[in-house]
Design a protein around this nucleic acid. Structure first.
Lengths: 224, 224
DNA sequence: GAGAATTATGAACGTTATATGAACGGCTGA
DNA sequence: TCAGCCGTTCATATAACGTTCATAATTCTC
């Protein structure tokens, strides 16, 4: 779901934080100093960073500075033993979002991570992520290899439904019930038309497709 | 400048916080319980709330709940003596943004206020900068490739909002709420008219645009 | 392989959402 | 006080969408 980078040179603490995050359904990318963090950031999509301040090579301050100066706006949460006001001042002035003093309560960490994601409007993006493909429910947007397009609502909802449960066959009636409402009087074949349009739209995209299950309905398939 | 409401039943602390904020150029609206806070919120434009949890009549939890349920998205910073995890959990789940435990360092409070305003894009910098394009909130000025023009207020605010969160779709209602006020009775279609005028105005500019998300609202796009 | 059943596809249509132009009235500053 | 700007409303034009329908293509059954 959300991708969080944990930058912390203390191996044990790094591992602890990562484990807690993973347990709470975050995707985690660990790094052990600021330099590694910067290079990993280029290669991974990251929603939020949790970072220590004191670290070898590039420290937390410089990491923050680098990121903000190169335009990264992602939330940065500092976890550190430094408890003096000047440290906090420096951190906040560089553009961090939150500051926790060790020893930290990992449960509070989770709460603060969530609050930051919410505030940065990252968390409300109901998303479906696959390799090469991402569906954004809020924006009705399908992104394939970085290229986004907005779909009409019905088409989007249909695709979203089918890809939410890949390989599971849905009858037309099921789809009608869920997307059109249980009492809809719309012709059941309307589903076909939308499926057809989706196929047209993504004819060239190899990463997913909608299969017909004759006699039953349709099913979504991802990344053969 | 920015308008901050301080909700705290301890008169001395309330006064202290207000004084510090005023000294740092914030406009302050004090309230001494949640009920008063709610009624003052209707009458004043507020950017951020600092609130205690334990208060007579409506407490901090209920205040937060009320606000979030009626659509207010402004940052809420809790200042409280309650230091247990369940308290924090409850607070964050209700939608607070930050949590400080008494006794607090007012200087750190200032830093956190600043961080929240920045993150909520309540224009701490009062500027939005992209390649080729810069929006100056103070002067209502949009600069494209060095050429500046002043926009009418509503048009400017709308553009500013949309470009503050590029690629995020805003419903007309959200935009109305934030730019016109939660209780505004202005026709929702007024948003369309302003969008239309902005498009007219920047028709020739390739660096940003406002896209329609049919059935939902609008979103800003920067530098395709 | 023929006919029946099912699905695919393209075109057309009505509906709804949005875009656009024009006009009105209030406010502001000269 | 008046002109001009601004925000708003309204009426109408336009475009997008969802649906239906007719027909073609495919698959299944016997």
């Amino acid at each position: 779901m959300f991708h969080i980078m944990v930058v912390e040179d203390d191996q044990a603490l790094n591992k602890l934080i990562c484990r807690v995050l993973i347990k709470n359904n975050y995707e985690v990318v660990p790094a052990f100093d600021g330099e590694e963090a910067l290079s990993l950031l280029d290669q991974n999509y990251i929603d939020l960073i949790i970072t220590d301040l004191m670290m070898p090579k590039v420290d937390g301050y410089d990491l923050t500075k680098e990121l903000r100066e190169s335009g990264y706006q992602l939330p940065i949460l500092v976890v550190t033993a430094k408890d003096t006001f000047p440290d906090k001042l420096k951190g906040f002035k560089l553009g961090i979002d939150d500051y926790m003093v060790k020893p930290i309560d990992v449960n509070e960490l989770l709460l603060r991570v969530e609050a930051l994601l919410r505030r940065a409007r990252i968390i409300y993006e109901k998303k479906l992520e696959f390799p090469h493909v991402c569906l954004d429910y809020i924006n009705l947007t399908v992104t394939v290899d970085g290229k986004s397009q907005i779909l009409p609502q019905k088409e989007f909802q249909l695709l979203y439904k089918l890809l939410s449960f890949p390989n599971q066959t849905f009858t037309r009636q099921q789809l009608m019930d869920e997307l059109w409402g249980y009492d809809s009087e719309t012709d059941i074949r309307t589903v076909d038309v939308h499926v057809n349009r989706l196929r047209d739209r993504f004819r060239e995209v190899p990463y997913f497709q909608i299969l017909t299950v004759r006699g039953l309905g349709y099913k979504g398939m991802v990344e053969k």
